[in-house]
Design a protein around this nucleic acid. Structure first.
Lengths: 334, 334
DNA sequence: TTGTACGCGTTATCAA
DNA sequence: TTGATAACGCGTACAA
């Protein structure tokens, strides 16, 4: 039987011929240690393959070096929508750059919420990032845990990072109108999400600015799913055969709409200009007929992790909120 | 300032009027405790909102109550392929049933491997589930950590849980042949994955059993991506215009093939029967023209977690390997 | 059945 | 700059 136990700091210290305290200082990068002993300890660490015991460290420091990413959405949906993929990817990368670990948990419904409550305590995580897109759901974490939201939450005092949904939608529709389209339809996102509401608001703003009337017949509710995009397009085409553009509140619905348009033999984007919010570069690339509002998901992740880190550092600081600007990416034929 | 500290077991014991040891026994569900004191302690736990300190517990018990799921694949791919979504979902659900937590990490390339090595120690996790589909990649974890693989690994002594790729492919192609098809083409998966090889082997087996010749012209290599499925179908159709069926090694490629077939105006499944391996029920449901080999991903997750739990319990036990049977699900028109 | 006391590996405080 | 030592919160062996 080989020795199963991991080497302890005590053993490292002994091998290096120093006290445990000194070894600890070296491992944690303290300044007050001579070059000679530092090297001796580092050598011992390498030799023994020492890895700090996180449990003991946490017990003492009351930090866990772990942050949680809570997505208030069903796994199905998280995996289906490119937005989440890009988001998780961006956050994951950003956390990798730090010394912290990331734990991801998806919360499909209320029943999983109580389990999570046990976990969202300072004992388990140093902070939490919440993607609580729907208004209703509120997380059961105490006020003693730093939280940063993805997307603007209801609580105006909360920290959050978001992309410029309103501005992005506004510019997208501006762009359509500049190209001479007058009957611009809209397939909205869910109205119980800020992102859904903001993108609709951007659509209205652009209409107003151009002096175009708001026509309720040109607006159809969607839920960010491809099916709802296809259905939305079908309804809109039936109701307003004269429409010459569709703004979909996300790319998945735009894809659904595109499919419906193609099925009907509509020339996209000659007859109908199609614009959506994209969740990933891939979506835009794969459908050249589609112009998209590009969301900087990598940047979003980085910013999010940064804001959370700051907040963990100093929980009493003034709450920060960041809104990242979006960028319009043309399909090849616009 | 409110008191930020979480209540300790000591405080629970004091409130319940018992010793700390007794409180611990109640929390951990020991038998040797009277009904009266148990209730008193439980009451105190509720009153104080006590949550056990995992760090302290780990330090003492040398267990972490955490298992890792390592997916040796890029995030992009993990999120794109429904197989992974179903897998993660199944495992996630299964772990939720236990008292353990799950941490998920995706390993796109070698560079992330060293970081992981630090984490894959008994100090951080009790065991690990590895989805190492490609042959090349081997994880840097010591022999002292229980490991269960998803899919048959190279090491014959390793624990694993897999779906019956060979049998599933075999039955799928059997099914096609029984319907009278004689020129059955195949779009394979990557041949550096056991699943890719096994499904191709199943295809050959079915051919042999039916006395049909193996024709290399009818086989085209794919990589499980939709694009490769479409390209595979295109190549096959050009090379063998007389083919009357296509067996794709996964559903994503089958979808790609379907798109190409539709584009060419081929009648599916009248002229060409199409069969794939599905990663999720949704894929099969959305394309009635497609017959799929259904993989029991929920069951796979449950089994996997169960096998790992056993192995954590008794690391010296004989390695177990489980192969779950698949089920052929007909499209509506077969 | 219950309480006491020790030690898990670490960081932090305090003298030296 | 360094080494001893006291917690951190918990499980458990042992004594009662």
């Amino acid at each position: 039987m080989t020795d199963i136990r991991q080497p302890t700091l005590e053993e490292v210290a002994r091998l290096a011929g120093v006290g445990r305290g000194t070894a600890s200082r070296v491992v944690n990068g303290s300044d007050h240690v001579s070059q000679r002993t530092r090297e001796a300890v580092e050598q011992a660490v390498r030799e023994l393959g020492y890895v700090p015991n996180q449990a003991a460290r946490s017990l003492k420091t009351r930090r866990t070096d772990t942050v949680a990413l809570v997505i208030a959405e069903d796994e199905e949906r998280v995996f289906a929508e490119p937005f989440f993929a890009g988001l998780v990817r961006g956050i994951s990368r950003a956390v990798d750059e730090t010394s912290r670990r990331l734990v991801l948990s998806m919360v499909p419904d209320e029943s999983h919420l109580s389990r999570l409550g046990q976990f969202l305590t300072p004992q388990h995580v140093d902070g939490v990032m919440v993607v609580s897109l729907h208004d209703a759901l509120s997380l059961p974490q105490g006020p003693d845990l730093p939280v940063v939201y993805v997307g603007r939450p209801n609580d105006p005092r909360a920290c959050f990072v978001d992309v410029d949904n309103l501005g992005g939608a506004r510019r997208a529709v501006d762009h359509i109108i500049e190209r001479g389209r007058r009957r611009v339809a809209c397939i909205t996102g869910p109205q119980d999400m800020a992102s859904g509401r903001d993108r609709l608001a951007g659509y209205r703003e652009a209409l107003d600015a151009a002096g175009l009337p708001f026509d309720a017949d040109l607006v159809e509710a969607g839920d960010f799913s491809e099916t709802s995009g296809a259905r939305g397009a079908a309804v809109l085409l039936d109701r307003c055969p004269d429409l010459d553009a569709i703004f979909a509140a996300n790319d998945v619905m735009a894809l659904g709409a595109l499919r419906e348009l193609t099925r009907r033999g509509v020339d996209v984007p000659q007859d109908v200009a199609l614009v959506g919010f994209d969740g990933s570069a891939a979506a835009a690339a794969s459908t050249p007929a589609l112009t998209t509002v590009h969301q900087p998901l990598a940047e979003l992740g980085a910013t999010l992790v940064d804001v959370l880190a700051r907040r963990i550092e100093d929980p009493d600081a003034e709450p920060t909120s960041v809104i990242l600007s979006t960028e319009l990416r043309m399909g090849e034929s616009s």
